[in-house]
Design a protein around this nucleic acid. Structure first.
Lengths: 209, 209
DNA sequence: GTCTATATAAAGATAGAC
DNA sequence: GTCTATCTTTATATAGAC
């Protein structure tokens, strides 16, 4: 975020740049690097794809890397806020997290690891993965660890659970809500309740902190 | 599987066709429809991409649809065998399932739903999704329901849990084993144990059946 | 800043030789 | 059955006008 050399301080340029990132974020998040073309990104903005090169001279790869970093940071910030808003108990925090994840485009870590990141140079790919671990998985993990420290839950591998919960909740993105006839958030809460029971969560114990 | 009009009964053709499907299966499973080219599929077989059109006259889409169907059926069969081999208790069955999933290329349902299947005509896409539900998620669901019926676990939404377990276990494909220093299968077992405890699994109760 | 026009590369697909 | 050769389309990317 800090090391990028800005081409201009023109507010019009910055806004245009930001709108491009917004458009690209949704498309890349849903369909991945290879499935999205620069024309897909430019068209909804009324732009020609060539115009994107003014803002991202190095082309698609640079745009994608920047979009992904922004996406992960935004996800992390939203997650932190959702956990915070969930209250002092772990159940509320995890429900908040689930609500946040399900309100956003999926974070498909499998596709990221197996496909998207292989299109980037290894250094950029590594950076993005580290951001995911730091801002998303790490946040979830620390939330669980805090509850563990305060005795709200029993012994458990918080890092493993964080990944498991994320994978579990994100997988709800692919369920056809119209067919199963149930809201994703409600399903997320039920799954979280199973996990909580599985790690001896007790609502009545003091949450500390 | 039954309705395809075979171009030939020549055993050489059938074998070649089968080798193409094998090559394509691994590539498509890991990287998805758009990221794999016909040249990627043909090259490792010492073939030119044009030769694929002999076996799949309708081109990439036909090849992909057939590969995916085969992949799902193979996955379902392997899953059934792994569950069977897991013994009579739910814990063993689910561990068998986890071991199977982790021995195969990831099933990325998010990518399938959000990206891959959109490249197919809706009828073919629908068929593939139904196969996933019938042969993979359905199998897991029935396994849980059987244990529920025999009193091995408490009340639970088996369909929801099946999806949750699949998403949870598949997400292990993206963890960097070299960094966390733990086998994926061991992590899968630990997550399954949490789920089982969360649905009141009791090893000692009679599993019935 | 965005455009048009174009270069270049790579993709899916087809025709016809062998 | 697989090849070579080629067509067409669609990408990314660049150059230069406005």
């Amino acid at each position: 975020m800090a090391s990028r050399a800005k081409l201009s301080v023109n507010p019009r340029a910055e806004e245009s740049r930001s709108r491009i990132l917004d458009s690209a974020e949704g498309l890349f998040a849903h369909r991945g690097f290879d499935s999205v073309t620069l024309r897909d990104i430019a068209a909804p903005l009324g732009l020609r794809h060539a115009s994107l090169y003014y803002h991202f001279p190095a082309g698609k790869e640079e745009l994608f890397a920047e979009v992904m970093e922004r996406n992960i940071r935004r996800h992390g910030a939203g997650l932190a806020a959702a956990i915070e808003a969930g209250g002092t108990r772990l159940r509320g925090k995890l429900r908040g997290a689930a609500g946040w994840f399900l309100s956003q485009a999926p974070i498909d870590l499998i596709r990221m690891a197996e496909s998207d990141l292989k299109a980037l140079d290894p250094k950029a790919a590594r950076k993005l993965m580290e951001l995911v671990y730091e801002l998303i998985l790490g946040r979830l993990q620390r939330t669980i660890e805090d509850s563990r420290a305060s005795g709200e839950v029993g012994p458990c591998d918080a890092g493993l659970l964080a990944g498991g919960i994320l994978g579990m909740v994100e997988s709800l993105h692919s369920v056809p809500v119209a067919i199963v006839g149930r809201e994703r958030y409600a399903m997320g809460c039920e799954l979280i309740d199973v996990i909580l029971k599985g790690i001896d969560y007790e609502e009545d114990r003091d949450a500390g902190g």
